[in-house]
Write a protein that binds this DNA or RNA. Structure first.
Lengths: 334, 334
DNA sequence: ATGAAAGCGCTAACAC
DNA sequence: GTGTTAGCGCTTTCAT
């Protein structure tokens, strides 16, 4: 049989209320009863039943992390950081990988929130259209958006990389190496990571007086396979392209496969710049230049933002973390 | 205000008992009341409070996945598979990354189980010494071990790769290329993935009449940095080593860095075989030969095993999934 | 087929 | 400083 608070109370010759007080430190207790109760608790290794606590207190000390592109290394590292922070604050973390399926995302959130399973959630959504959150927002249910967001949802805090700047910097880097025809491999068109980076790309081109051409874009779906196909397709149809701007780690790996298949050398035949910075990019020969997005800081900040939102419903900061260009050799020297 | 079952009952002019029956399909209900109740439920988007359900039914439809070496790609893919299976069966998944800290692992499990937060757990432990689970096992709390295990815990189901065979095959492959001095980079000495693979390695050497030398071992702690240092240390102190047997993806990446630092070429100066098979191993030049451990099958099987254990406390199968050698070019031709 | 009511394990208001 | 008790939202006997 499971030992309950009643059992502890009986064995210590006190009421359950006193046991509860001792456990939660809610009210002062005499030295003597405190010790007596603690001894019994230790003896039985007693821990309160969390369902009962949750039911009573209407909170669960549990948060959910819902991501769409797992296990891309960037998301994976964000996940690690969120988990770490949750642990530091004594929160449990429910993990859901939607596998880019919007309906599953919506369904999961609906279930989790209406069943009151979690106190808040951190979401990296499948798209920039998540109006279905509106009823939750109206009810002041704590949500924070991470990595990708919906610009319409202004009252929700969000933490992302500075994707616009990242796109701008990456493009300038390519431009400075003399490239005029820069291909883009993106994962999905309707996510802010794509949109914002492409805006940066566009701006950089404009400043350089170079036309922005949508036919230089190819969709890679965030996978190795997809990145490979997209790169092959793009390079075959637009042979004038001399540089590639690739939106995620897995697709970068695919793009490199494609270059090998096409017997193209980087940086000589084609330049390459990735986003995310996977572990292996340094040991690929020549090493791959990357825009580093800081997953660790993003994950931690996202959890902190959730905590803020939970204690203050007005909290709605939009945090953009700076990115950095890690110049290796895939774009040529310097 | 949150809508409760009472509200639904009132609006539908029935008792809460009837609403409960309709929701759970516990007892037959008249067509008419069924429809009436369902309409009200739809209208309010009502979902039962899970804490109340858990408290009453003494189960939570929640499982925990506790891993130690996140985000190594192998574990990451197991995580994805477990999540997928959990979802298929309507379970929520609590995720904990212990970061190889045994005390945190123990503490988390203690908390999760004694607070009755989860119905069962899947554990990839930090070491092969997890006796602290014994009280839980005695209480018949459902646990399954994945990836790493404790051989003493025979009544717990486990699902792993066939690490012995994997080590044996990898070593034979190296042997067949004429190597006689095979270095090993391992993560931790006291985990079964290391022990079993090394037993396979030992056996293969023995059959080939080659001495087994522990001074050919270097610890890499499962990280890129650690793998790099271990490889450098090993190769500097034992220049006769012509082949490397590396136990995890992140360490393989580190090992390659080390080779570059030492200006050693593979497979000419040194052969290389990894375990796990990370995405980038194919695009590294020359591509890296790997023992592929099937994370997807392992993760799914682990969740299935948990389900089995939950319904049948006697269930204690030890499942070893076959591995496969993916021969690329890091060990020479053929 | 449906309702009344007990009770899961806990917390907190209220009394002393 | 401590005990009594109501009640969180639900499931499930036991009646009818």
């Amino acid at each position: 049989m499971k030992v309950t608070m009643k059992d502890i109370a009986k064995e210590a010759n006190v009421s359950v209320a006193t046991v509860s007080r001792v456990i939660n430190g809610t009210k002062p207790t005499s030295e003597e009863t405190y010790k007596k109760i603690m001894d019994v608790i230790k003896k039985y290794n007693y821990v309160p039943n969390s369902s009962a606590q949750n039911l009573r207190q209407k909170n669960t000390k549990t948060a959910a992390l819902i991501v769409s592109s797992f296990p891309d290394s960037y998301i994976t590292n964000i996940t690690k950081a969120v988990g770490q922070r949750a642990r530091e604050y004594g929160y449990r973390l429910l993990f859901i990988d939607t596998n880019e399926q919007a309906d599953y995302e919506q369904e999961s959130i609906q279930l989790l929130t209406s069943s009151q399973m979690v106190d808040g959630l951190i979401l990296s959504p499948t798209s920039n259209n998540i109006d279905y959150l509106q009823p939750l927002i109206d009810k002041q249910f704590p949500i924070v958006l991470v990595n990708r967001y919906d610009p319409k949802l202004e009252t929700i805090p969000r933490v992302t990389a500075d994707d616009y700047q990242a796109g701008f910097d990456a493009t300038n880097h390519l431009l400075s190496h003399g490239h005029k025809h820069i291909g883009v491999v993106y994962n999905f068109p309707n996510v802010t990571t794509t949109i914002d980076r492409l805006n940066g790309y566009k701006e950089a081109l404009q400043l350089a007086g170079i036309p922005y051409r949508e036919d230089y874009f190819a969709q890679g779906f965030g996978t190795v396979e997809g990145g490979m196909r997209a790169t092959e397709r793009l390079l075959k149809s637009k042979p004038e392209v001399t540089a590639l701007f690739i939106q995620s780690d897995l697709m970068t790996i695919g793009a490199i496969s494609a270059l090998k298949n096409l017997s193209l050398k980087w940086p000589d035949d084609i330049s390459l710049i990735g986003f995310g910075d996977f572990e292996a990019s340094e040991i690929i020969e020549p090493p791959i230049t990357n825009v580093n997005l800081p997953p660790d800081t993003i994950g931690k900040t996202a959890f902190d933002a959730l905590l803020n939102k939970m204690s203050n419903p007005q909290y709605n900061r939009h945090i953009q973390l700076p990115t950095s260009l890690i110049v290796r050799k895939s774009c040529g020297s310097h």
